[in-house]
Design a protein around this nucleic acid. Sequence first.
DNA 1: AGGTAAAAGCTATCGCTGATAGGGTGGCTT
DNA 2: AAGCCACCCTATCAGCGATAGCTTTTACCT
Lengths: 204, 204
Amino acid sequence: MPPEEMTPRRRNRRNEILEVAGELFARHGVDAVTTRRIAQAVGISQPSLYAHFASLQQIQDEVAAEAFARLEQAISSADGESPETQLEKAVRGYFDFGLSHPYAYRIAFMVEYPADKPDPADPSVSAFFQTDHPGPRASEHLCRIVGLNRPDLSAKAVIMRSQSLWASLHGLVSLLLARPAFPWGEKQELVDEHSRLACKMVFD
Amino acid sequence: MPPEEMTPRRRNRRNEILEVAGELFARHGVDAVTTRRIAQAVGISQPSLYAHFASLQQIQDEVAAEAFARLEQAISSADGESPETQLEKAVRGYFDFGLSHPYAYRIAFMVEYPADKPDPADPSVSAFFQTDHPGPRASEHLCRIVGLNRPDLSAKAVIMRSQSLWASLHGLVSLLLARPAFPWGEKQELVDEHSRLACKMVFD
DNA sequence: AGGTAAAAGCTATCGCTGATAGGGTGGCTT
DNA sequence: AAGCCACCCTATCAGCGATAGCTTTTACCT
């Protein structure tokens, strides 16, 4: 059922659950948050969650989607400025988002792809790449910005370059999230230097 | 107990369990492999696993460590050749490894860091960064190769650059593993182009 | 060869997980 | 006022990782 067709009471409960779940994900990590913990924090019984969501996975997906709307906003916040400025701000926004929403980032991009379910039509696989989802929209923004900076490249080359850029940004974010105990030196310095190199990479 | 102090029978069982678990991880994905499935495939009861390993996590870690020895080998396989050749072969070896050992890669670098256990001394967190582990050894090789290619940089700058390179490689591998259904275009072409950009990044 | 102690297997069980079945209750609509 | 339906509840299920306690098998040492 689309949200706008829901009764206000139902929508409020849904939003309340998503809000509480988001706080728990941020505080305890995605894997440590169970349906019973969410239900207890909301103040309802565990099975009652299933009147609003089909599964725990769906709750995780919707919480992550909400956070990703902010990534899209961060990436495209420099609309109208010079291509270089847009690129720099997008890169900066990407790191800010990933490092300050680790749980959403993990849900979206660090989950395992089940090897015995290689069906791209599986909704659990492709949910994040439907056109109305903030995740792919964010990557489209990135692609557009790369195109602005490299009008000399073909459309295909722009796509590949933006995917390389995305991979490069994603790599540092996910490593910093997955291995916070690694001897990274000064993290902010590493992020700054990596941002510089990633921007330069677009022009190689 | 160190492996060399084990009785041969015990060591054989251990190795058999690790081998079977590795095949199951590769075939069904890490999350789908339970202690009961491993035990059934080996031909013993589920609790019997705990005579050889303290936890499922330990089994996962040891399987991943075994695979990572191959990454270390791949990265350092060009010892003695020119710095540029060593860099190119290391980058190539990294992609070959990550894309052909997805389960090991995921165990090692795509797991969640528990937000309420920020203790770096926690063995479950730092296991992969003990000096005798293939994971950090591989990253040290990468650092050494970057140093060979950039003798002009300070030691600190070399470390940062190698971490940027690592992040860039890791980013593409983990995205390809986590999002195989994404419209990547021709994957091999993307990997080749990204390799080229990553190598260039070292010299920026 | 025989005795002994540890290694390694088993069954049974615990507390937890996500998810489902089915019955009750209260508020909005007609 | 009547009725419907959205919502929440208790009870329960199968499966999970892990532990307890007992039995069998193996290996070693006299």
